Simulated scan of single mutants.
Amino acid sequence: MWYISTRGMAPRVDFEGALFSGYAPDGGLFMPEELPQLSRETLRQWSALSYPSLVKELCALFIGPELIPRDDLNDLIHQAFRRFRHNEVVHLSRLKNGLNVLELWHGVTYAFKDLSLCCTAQFLQYFLEKREKHITVVVGTSGDTGSAAIESVQGAKNVDIIVLLPKGHCTKIQELQMTTVLKENVHVFGGIGRLLPESVPGGSIPDHTLETTI
């Protein structure tokens, strides 16, 4: 599986390359070069899977076994969801008159972003351990991204995380989630300003006045 930039001006990369690049060199987002085609029979079989099992099947479509063998992939997904409070990870509550509610709040921080970031962190650490490398992740947040990102990598040997939050503009519980994690690889700063950018390349983050919040 190869990934190409939405702007079409960057070399294609594999999953590992896309994972560590974030944005493509031309400023675009990486997307699969081709989307897998699924048969009706496959969809029928998948409809009976648990959420973690479905994630394993979907990830296997986009991450080649030459990068992460299937047994390793299964272990990584299992590790990613081990701290969720509900054994189904994502629970579907069936209410009256055909109304259903999909519960996405059973992760550590109660945010839906726990679902993706816990997997992302497992993939990062897998490749970093194999390559014997270390990275620093910089996160700008308005609340839920920062706490979910922190929980996904807190205590990791190969990853340091720097989180920039808009001081006084997050909810109290979100601010506490970010500023009370006392791990050596977690670094949280409060910025003076309404909102810190979450979705811009690191080199494009404008200057902010920062002060430590721990």
Rank of each mutant, 00 (worst) to 15 (best):
I162V: 13
Q154V: 04
T179W: 01
L210H: 13
T179V: 02
D144Q: 11
L165M: 10
S147E: 13
T136I: 06
Q125I: 07
P166I: 00
K167H: 11
N74Q: 11
L58V: 15
D144E: 10
I68E: 07
E132W: 04
V159F: 03
S199I: 08
V163G: 03
V186P: 00
C170N: 14
V159Q: 10
L67F: 04
E16T: 10
V139F: 04
D14L: 09
Q122V: 02
S39E: 10
S142W: 10
L115Q: 07
K172R: 14
L196R: 02
G155Y: 06
P69C: 04
D26S: 06
L73F: 01
R82N: 09
R85L: 12
C118R: 07
D114W: 08
A24T: 13
H187Y: 11
L128I: 02
T136C: 12
E184T: 08
T136L: 05
T209R: 09
H78T: 15
E34M: 09
V186S: 02
A148R: 13
K56M: 02
G168M: 02
S47R: 14
H134P: 01
R44G: 08
K130D: 08
S21R: 06
P32V: 00
F20Y: 09
Y126I: 01
I161F: 00
L58F: 10
Y23G: 09
R12M: 14
N185C: 01
Q177I: 02
V200D: 04
V188R: 05
E41C: 02
F84M: 01
T145S: 10
L76H: 11
I162F: 04
G17N: 06
L61H: 12
G155C: 02
N185W: 04
K183H: 14
M1L: 07
G98A: 00
R85S: 15
C59R: 12
I4H: 09
V89R: 05
E16F: 04
S152M: 01
